[in-house]
Design a protein around this nucleic acid. Structure first.
Length: 415
RNA sequence: CGGGCCGGAGUAUGCCGGUAGUACAUCUGCUUUGGGAGCAGACAGACCGAGUUCAAUUCUCGGCGGCCCGACCA
């Protein structure tokens, strides 16, 4: 798209009320806007990156047999009362509201209840199993303290996957499939090397769960890592001997680090299926509760994590896989002159070739364009100035490494 | 939820119990155009309420909002 048509502006300075690096840079570059504490809007560039992340997650969910749905954010209290989680003392982050006629509603903070209740209409036999259902939905959590920019928000998008299996053994096999899919996701968005499968508390559901923790000083969690085994232990279970028995880790070999929880995988067992009546008939005709799991990734938090890890003093630095555009075409010409006409032609070529390109066609100074381009963080910058007009070659600058190569228009078109 | 700090043009910030100053952004004109250009001009501001005072943006209290530390995070 043409940058002259992009409504967002960049800022030279970070807002005084943001300390978190992710929020400072994303606000400065015009990716997000803060609506209130813990509530952010995604602007055109930010939405493109968010959708890239969502696209990668979706591909990996499809690859392990996930079926995508979109459940409502408004929650019927009934299934929550059956599971015992409607009470504010049980879930302290509830946002609740009323219907005009006085009935109560909740804003979904997770979807185990709603989906489990829904699936009772669709699963009744062992022949219907397994089922893997996921969605991208906004979650609402009335956090007592929102913090860290988009990392811990009160309204945020979450990919939540739920598995419905016949028994623990088939559940365990799928659980490992999800683990592989998650590792693919983190690798593909550029944080694979810093992300560890981490043993964590299972809460009220099971003995322990797994989190995916990305090592980063901005993180809220403390983990203990065995780098060779690519495994870690969350501080909350650091003193739990069962974790070491299950993981094969040795406490003495672990090193401490701060980390961001970018995903989690949970065994739920029959905790929800039993109270909500989700069962199936086996071959012998007797009803059995379905064995469940739940698996979350917050695409917004993932975006913030990528910013925390990869950005530099000049601004954002996106991996190609999640960048809002593949190419930032920067024209140094003034509208109508040779350089500008050359840039226009190259832009048209890219558009025809299906290359995602942001074209800075504005009449502003070169310095401002470069500074803004660095801030926005698109992986490749192509500069069209006097040199390009004189030599027919374009300077291609790599945002991450600052490496420069020269290419002709023919070479671009051949790619 | 406990503790601390903060609230001023669109953004960032200096000073101040007595005419709210600066930079950037925006608008106009001229000159510029390979690293957030220059000059001239213009537009634009004290969260809400109460109290103290001759006088409050400034001090005090309350509310609302924001940030940080801690607790919490199924």
């Amino acid at each position: 798209m043409r940058q002259s048509k992009l409504f967002t502006r960049t800022r030279r300075e970070a807002p005084s009320d943001e300390v978190a690096k992710n929020a400072q840079l994303l606000v400065r570059a015009g990716y997000i806007h803060k609506e209130m504490a813990g509530v952010y809007d995604y602007l055109p560039l930010g939405l493109r990156t968010l959708n890239k992340i969502i696209g990668i997650i979706r591909e990996e969910m499809q690859a392990i047999g996930g079926e995508e749905v979109f459940l409502s954010a408004l929650q019927n209290p009934e299934p929550w009362k059956k599971s015992g989680r409607w009470d504010d003392k049980v879930i302290d982050v509830w946002f609740k509201t009323q219907l005009k006629n006085g009935g109560e509603l909740g804003l979904g903070n997770t979807h185990e209840e709603a989906l489990t209740a829904l699936m009772t209409e669709h699963i009744s036999s062992y022949k219907d199993l397994p089922r893997y259902v996921y969605q991208f939905q906004n979650k609402f959590r009335n956090e007592t303290r929102a913090k860290s920019g988009i990392m811990r928000a009160r309204e945020f998008i979450m990919k939540d996957l739920y598995s419905f299996s016949a028994d623990a053994a088939s559940h365990d096999a799928f659980y490992e499939n999800v683990a592989v899919a998650y590792e693919n996701i983190f690798k593909r968005v550029g944080i694979g090397a810093q992300t560890y499968r981490t043993f964590a508390s299972g809460g009220s559901f099971s003995k322990y769960s797994h989190e995916y923790q990305t090592v980063c000083d901005a993180g809220e969690d403390v983990i203990y890592i065995d780098a060779a085994k690519r495994l870690a232990v969350n501080k909350e279970v650091y003193d739990d001997q069962e974790v070491y028995a299950a993981s094969g880790l040795t406490k003495e070999n672990l090193t401490e680090a701060k980390a961001i929880e970018v995903g989690n995988i949970f065994t739920l067992g029959t905790r929800f299926s039993e109270v909500l009546g989700l069962s199936y008939k086996g071959a012998e005709g007797k009803p059995k509760p379905i064995f469940m799991g739940s698996y979350g990734i917050g695409p917004g938090r993932l975006m913030g994590t990528i910013v925390e890890l990869l950005s530099d003093e000049k601004g954002l630095v996106w991996p190609e896989s999640v960048a809002p555009f593949a190419v930032h075409l920067v024209s140094l010409g003034k509208s109508g002159d040779d350089a500008s006409q050359l840039a226009d032609a190259l832009y048209e070529d890219f558009v025809k070739a299906g290359v995602e390109v942001l074209y800075d066609d504005r009449d502003t100074s070169a310095g401002q364009k470069f500074a803004e381009s660095d801030l926005i963080g698109i992986p490749k910058r192509i500069v069209v100035g006097r040199d390009a007009v004189a030599t027919g070659t374009f300077e291609v600058v790599d945002r991450a490494t600052s490496a420069v190569v020269k290419k002709t228009r023919v070479e671009f078109l051949a790619q």
